[in-house]
């Protein structure tokens, strides 16, 4: 009995010492995961995940404090990539239905209604709105991420979201659809 306890204690002490040494020797600082998560996020800075921007959300996800399926603009694609990155099971954004990435939109100010209150300029996370007090505001379409934060901020409801149209430069080839693919896809999923 005594010898059994002694042997186990001996084992524990020796192995504990080795591990303690290793934990000092192989100490790791920082977390490269945050960078990878942030690179996956669409950077709209919309705050729909409940965090004040993409970086804080990435930090929360890396720390395990937030689910990876909270990014609404990224939709299921981003949720899927994050789940894969974290090695957890994929859950669709916003319940079982799942949301695909929304068509890309930009905000548009109806310039005849705008009263020049600068309320939208203050909330725009990427400084995509130009204008000054009492002057009409305009949205620069290129930097606009379509986060919709300016829409509720406007006191006269002059901001609307318009989809970004396709032109020859941004046009994409479609996934080839041919007879048998259509037939195969007709089978019930799930």
């Amino acid at each position: 009995m005594i010898s059994a306890i002694l042997v186990m204690v001996l084992l524990a002490v020796v192995l504990g010492a080795v591990l303690g040494f290793a934990s000092i020797k192989f100490k790791v600082e920082g977390n490269p995961l945050v960078e990878k998560i942030e690179a996956t996020l669409p950077q709209t800075q919309c705050g729909q995940c409940g965090f004040a921007g993409c970086r804080p959300y990435a930090e929360a996800v890396a720390a395990g404090q937030a689910e990876p399926n909270k990014c609404v603009p990224g939709g299921d694609n981003v949720a899927k990539n994050l789940a894969e990155l974290l090695g957890v099971e994929f859950k669709p954004v916003g319940g079982d239905e799942g949301v695909g990435p929304k068509p890309r939109m930009v905000a548009f100010i109806d310039e005849s209604t705008c009263i020049g209150c600068t309320a939208c300029i203050k909330v725009c996370p990427v400084d995509a709105i130009v204008g000054t007090t009492k002057m009409m505001h305009t949205i620069l379409a290129t930097p606009c991420t379509g986060c919709e934060l300016c829409v509720p901020a406007c006191p006269v409801n002059c901001i609307s979201m318009i989809p970004v149209g396709q032109n020859i430069a941004t046009w994409k080839w479609q996934y080839p659809v041919f007879e048998l693919t259509v037939m195969a896809n007709r089978r019930p999923e799930k």
């Binding site: 942030e38 996020l41 669409p42 950077q43 800075q45 400084d127 930097p143």
Partner: peptide, 10 residues
């Protein structure tokens, strides 16, 4: 690239 630019602007 757009996301990277948006991040910088933010």
């Amino acid at each position: 690239m757009a996301a990277e630019q948006a991040r910088q602007r933010f």
